[in-house]
Nucleic acid binder design. Sequence first.
DNA 1: AAAGCTATCTATAAATC
DNA 2: TGATTTATAGATAGCTT
Lengths: 181, 181
Amino acid sequence: MGRGKVELKKIENPTNRQVTFSKRRMGLLKKANELAILCDAQIGVIIFSGTGKMYEYSSPPWRIANTFDRYLKAPSTRFEEMDVQQKIIHEMTRMKDENNRLRIIMRQYMGDDLASLTLQDVSNLEQQIEFSLYKVRLRKQQLLDQHLLEMHHREMHIPGEQNNYLCHMVSHMYKLSPGLY
Amino acid sequence: MGRGKVELKKIENPTNRQVTFSKRRMGLLKKANELAILCDAQIGVIIFSGTGKMYEYSSPPWRIANTFDRYLKAPSTRFEEMDVQQKIIHEMTRMKDENNRLRIIMRQYMGDDLASLTLQDVSNLEQQIEFSLYKVRLRKQQLLDQHLLEMHHREMHIPGEQNNYLCHMVSHMYKLSPGLY
DNA sequence: AAAGCTATCTATAAATC
DNA sequence: TGATTTATAGATAGCTT
């Protein structure tokens, strides 16, 4: 929108970023309000700016807390039936532990917090990640092939541009992974 | 937008309402994502349709819980007013959700369950994993250097085997990463 | 209920004040 | 800096299939 296309990445210039934040924040909240009213939906939006300031919207006439309460309760178990407090404490502890465990694994998988690992561990990790990368690239190639095929079919119906689809494809790929070229 | 201006009131025709809901919901989430990325903000959006179905967005790379944590901790919310049991329920639910979320992310990070990701998502994932791999290899090299140094020092005290430590090292490295040689 | 298609309306980036 | 204007990209209402 506006005088030029904007690529989807953090705006580096702080002034521009602040101006855009202000405009788009207003736009987002307006859209949320329209959607809530037009379609009779309940909506909650929370925005924290980079500097930590909070902005929120909740569809009238409910308070935002209600929306979030529903969110918190939506995928959860019914605790009404639970009577033993001990049970709760036990379950919480278990979940907390599992959570921490997952976080640690996750961080190591992302290449952080490797200090406690032995050479053997790091090596195993490396191989696992190599395999992940292999699978992800496989999937990416599938999607690219699919995309290419679609564009090719589209081009078939637009004579005169038959030689351009590869250019489009390449430029698209470049936008997705500029670092690769 | 579209072929005619719409006044800001509930769309009475259920079919039109549903279609508009679907379109605008997507639009809203897209805008939220753009704002989060362009302006480096943390954003959470929850939408309940009139029929009670829930949709949500949280600023990348994942974890709506984070945004809501900050909301709940923000000064002067209803959280303070809740009784202890309520707080426990909230906390348990939050942990459970976070747990599920971590598992999903983990699986995607390991290159499984990629079917739901777009080309863009897969591309981002690929770059993240590449970076992880880079960090892990960096750490591995550190450990190898360290190991090498230790062996070298040891050799200094055992004359007669001075020319063998490199052979040991190479064979050790080979055992760790046979694929590399 | 799902997709695709434009004419049109809206949001907003950049320019200007 | 902040408000206002303008040109353009983007969103979408009403259709069609």
